[in-house]
Amino acid sequence: MEIELVKISPLPKNSTIIVGLPDIGLVGAISSSFLIKTFNMREVAFLDSPKFPPILVFHDTKPKAPIRLHADSDKVVLVSEIPILPNQFTPLAKKIVSLVEKTEAKNLIMIGGIPAPNRIDIKKPKVYGAAILEEDKEKLKNAGIELFKNGFIAGVYASILKECMKKKLPAIILLVESYANYPDPGAAAAALEALSKLLGVSINVDPLLQQEEEIRLKLRELMQRTVNSLKASSKEYEYAVPLMYA
């Protein structure tokens, strides 16, 4: 069943679309909500489907759908306050790709975590980048972001990347070393610094690091639900080694 895009105001054309969904360490969700606050982005649309859980969230008395699009003049950010269930991966991926096409977006950039078993000993998490198009790999290299060379990407981001690959659309994913089962604002800060270099836009991550403990504490429920949903989304593949001569 298709996902409906409910527009509140017009979406900017030729923008960069940034997708930060609940995933490993909630890196994407933390990053996208931080971007919305930092750039004071207005809500422009929300996504709805009969298959979504019956949830509405109130922020400062205002009712909001849990999966929303916020924008400024040249950026659109997709944020979700609920985990995306595996049966919604493909419909959501198709909706995002259709949004890229209809708004003639310049870039599609996803932000996610990659589980690092020694995260407790890592002070500055490393960010890797993967892209569909060769020119985007050059952009990553020029921004000093190491390319993700071998390994599986599973879950909702894999579905989005696959849809982009079918249509030869530009798509980049930033993957940062992260705790698998705890919200990781430190990893989100590292991902946002990489995004800042990639877009050539200044992003001050200090407020995010200052609120690190509060974010970790208050996102426990979302993290727990996300971990449960990840168990059903083939995430275990990310621990596997791909074929050597493919």
């Binding site: 698998a180 705890y182 919200p183 690190e212 504490l217 426990r220």
Partner: peptide, 23 residues
């Protein structure tokens, strides 16, 4: 009381428990 997030890892020699305790 708040309940913290935790994970349990098992190796052949030991059980490792990690608990996230902000603040």
């Amino acid at each position: 009381c708040l309940e913290p997030l935790h994970e349990v890892e098992e190796t052949p020699e030991e059980v490792i428990v990690r608990v996230d305790l902000p603040y």
